[in-house]
Simulated scan of single mutants.
Amino acid sequence: MFPSTVLLTGGAGFVGSHVASLLAGRNVRVIVPTRRRDRAKHLILLPMVEVVEADVHDPATLARLMTGVDAVINFVGILHSSGGSPWGRDFERAHVALPGAIAAAAKVAGVARLIQISALGAAADAPSEYLRSKAAGEAAIRAGGVPWTIFRPSLVFGDGQCFLRLFAGLLKLFPVFPLAGAGTRYQPVDVRDVARCVVHALGEDEAIGRTWALCGPRVYTMRELVRMTGRAIGAERCVIGLPGALASLQALALELAPGPTLMSRDNLRSMQVDSVCNDGCTLPFGFQPNALENAIDACLADFKPTDRFESARSRAHR
């Protein structure tokens, strides 16, 4: 039976917002807790979606949120943390402790289904703290006593948003593009494909106890993704792959740069593992994946000179 009330932890984010929209379209009551309501303002007007200011890291609050809930989907994830062994405290809080707390609270409340959004490459012996902590979160979900499903997406794109935007901004600045992890392979997946797999799994008994990788139809190296971005915005550059020591220096420089962290040394360690599915991998439930090429123009539209010119003319009412 498909759930009538679903709790989305981390539901105000990129993937969670798409899942909330799909569930609302099926007349499912959706509860989205957030520390700040304005971060979820894009969801407030959706019918059936209730945005609640709450701290899901607080055990009493988490228990209260579980009341009357049929299923929980956990999207909480972060990319950066202070270092530690086997992982830093921020990874511990978001990727390990929280899934364990969610599973425990869900079991007490009698929640029927629990879905965890993890990461492709998660493993206890992975080279990065990020991937090791994601694997520990998966273990907490599996041991929690609630029927579970785990999804491991590769890089996610869609709806005018994608990781290529970071490259686009940098390509505009540098005539030569030094690149750490140039040979790492990725299999980007459309956010709409991720969302429909997650929603479909809620009503499928075959999804219980399964861990699925979610990937698009094509594999790219990081170098190919940067070159694709350059072609799309009219800023093709010479891409120079950096060897290990220089790649670490680049990651450290970006880690220490002012403003939001663009990359860290732990991110670089994650890039030692290809983010791709096994040979012949397809989306579950017979879904056909959308290709990155179909979304790249929308993703990078405001980096193209003609688009920026037209946008400026429009703002000037000319």
Rank of each mutant, 00 (worst) to 15 (best):
D302F: 11
T306H: 13
D90E: 07
E310F: 13
R196V: 11
G77P: 03
P217H: 15
A298H: 09
L262M: 06
T5I: 14
L170D: 03
E138D: 12
L166G: 09
P175R: 01
A123L: 12
G25R: 11
I31V: 14
L79C: 04
R113T: 02
G68A: 09
A94D: 06
V194Y: 03
P147W: 09
L7N: 05
E50C: 08
Q288A: 07
T184Y: 00
T229S: 15
P258Q: 06
L155H: 12
G88I: 01
Q272A: 06
T306E: 15
I240L: 15
F174M: 11
C215R: 03
S128F: 05
Y186N: 02
K134Q: 10
C162M: 10
A245K: 15
A140S: 13
H200I: 11
P59G: 10
G160Q: 15
V19C: 09
C299Y: 01
R39H: 06
M1C: 12
R39K: 09
L173G: 11
G209H: 12
E53M: 05
L45G: 08
D190V: 11
W212K: 06
A112W: 05
S314R: 15
R185Q: 07
S314M: 15
F177Y: 01
G181C: 03
F151Y: 07
S81C: 01
M228R: 10
E293C: 12
M271S: 03
L43W: 03
G77Q: 00
P217Y: 13
V6N: 02
N290F: 08
L252W: 13
V96R: 00
V276E: 01
P178F: 07
E50A: 07
F14L: 12
C238G: 13
M228G: 14
L45A: 12
S17L: 13
G16W: 02
E224T: 14
E204M: 13
S4C: 14
P147T: 13
T261P: 03
G16M: 07
L283R: 01
L262I: 08
T61V: 10
G286Y: 04
M48T: 07
S264L: 04
A24L: 04
